[in-house]
């Protein structure tokens, strides 16, 4: 059982975000309150949308009068689970690449591969992701007809796999180096001497020691996916496709299809000076989600660190409990020698 407050706080925040989003869908059928004009008690119009923040609507409303907070809540059920999915894929694929890397490669091949893969350190992920996703996600126009190059499900599949595969090389080198460091430990060498094969060492020694580290890598990757989502949203590449309005004099900004958060950022960020809260609402939600993931990471770290300490304690106790009675040995002079 994990006893860290930080871990549970992070988990509860994430679960609350996704859960309330799902409840909103099931109970209210994802209906978003629209308040284009605010009336006072006498029925006079007081204010027109966009409305400022109020206890009723913490992020105010947008220009069309839709409640921003409800919009953000509606999007949570897409953004967070997909971030988790992408991060999970990254770690799992990287883990399976790391196994041959650590176990079967001679050290010169390992070094070469590390160099090849760490060349990605100099290629900024956001730029590459924008460059690759632009043809996939943005609606195009040919003559009169607006069209997407790919269907909705294919777009999502491509985006998820591109965002996964771009980072897999770096993560697999990281995990591979963790494994090789593990293999150099003394207890592994002694089990080798005792005749353990590669599979047994992997199952009994490497996996148990690596799993905690992998959990931490996973939560860190969740954060990095969320950051990429925010960047892509700013550059108007929304999750699942960007609906661009090509008709002349069209002043509707490019729309996201599902109110997921990167779409909301792209739609509202240009309001930053006129209505800061509208623009920053989705960004703040990104911040909350990232903080929750960071809390989970730290909670896990303290949990695993304290787990190690407990194990050493037990060992010391055992050493202490060796019975030190007089029966253990006999005095030479009593033996009469």
């Amino acid at each position: 059982m994990i006893r860290s407050i930080k871990f549970w706080a992070g988990c509860i925040v994430l679960a609350a975000l996704i859960g309330s989003s799902l409840v909103h869908q099931m109970v209210f059928d994802s209906k978003i309150k629209k308040v284009p004009v605010l009336y006072n008690d006498k029925g006079e119009a007081v204010k027109a949308a966009p409305l400022p923040a109020s206890p009723d609507m913490p992020f105010g409303t947008d220009r069309q009068g839709y409640d921003m907070f409800a919009k953000v809540m509606q999007g949570a059920k897409y953004t967070i689970p997909f971030a988790i999915l992408i991060a999970l894929q990254r770690v799992v694929i990287a883990f399976f690449i790391a196994i041959p890397y650590a176990f079967y490669f001679p050290s010169w091949a390992r070094k070469g591969l590390e160099q090849l893969l760490s060349s990605f350190y100099y290629v900024p992920l956001t730029i590459i992701a924008i460059f690759l996703l632009e043809p996939v996600l943005v609606e195009r126009i040919a003559g009169e007809k607006e069209y997407f190059t790919y269907d909705f499900s294919v777009r999502i599949f491509l985006e998820v796999s591109i965002l996964t595969l771009l980072v897999v090389p770096m993560v697999s080198v990281m995990i591979g180096n963790m494994m090789t460091a593990q293999l150099k430990e003394e207890f592994i060498q002694s089990s080798q001497v005792l005749g353990a094969g590669k599979i047994r060492i992997f199952r009994k020694h490497v996996v148990p020691h690596l799993l905690p580290k992998l959990c931490i890598v996973f939560t860190q990757q969740c954060v990095s996916v969320l950051i990429i989502f925010a960047h892509l949203g700013y550059f108007k590449l929304f999750f699942g496709g960007t609906d661009v309005c090509y008709t002349p004099f069209c002043d509707i900004p490019p729309q996201s299809i599902s109110n997921e958060w990167s779409g909301l950022i792209g739609e509202y960020y240009q309001n930053i000076f006129a209505h800061p809260l509208i623009a920053l609402g989705p960004v703040i939600m990104f911040g909350i989600a990232i903080y929750a993931f960071n809390l989970v990471t730290e909670g896990l770290q303290t949990h695993f660190a304290s787990g190690k300490r407990k194990r050493t304690y037990k060992k010391e106790e055992k050493e202490d409990t060796i019975p030190a009675g007089a029966e253990q040995f006999t005095f030479i002079n009593e033996k009469g020698a």
């Binding site: 954060v223 969320l226 950051i227 925010a230 960047h231 700013y234 950022i265 960020y269 930053i272 000076f273 800061p276 623009a279 920053l280 960004v283 703040i284 990104f286 911040g287 990232i290 903080y291 960071n294 809390l295 730290e298």
Partner: peptide, 21 residues
């Protein structure tokens, strides 16, 4: 620092901009 570390970069830029204004 964990809290600050979680600030999305877009939020930081916006805050700097707004602070100057």
């Amino acid at each position: 620092l964990t809290l600050l570390e979680s600030l999305p970069d877009l939020l930081v830029f916006a805050l700097v901009q707004m602070f100057i204004v």
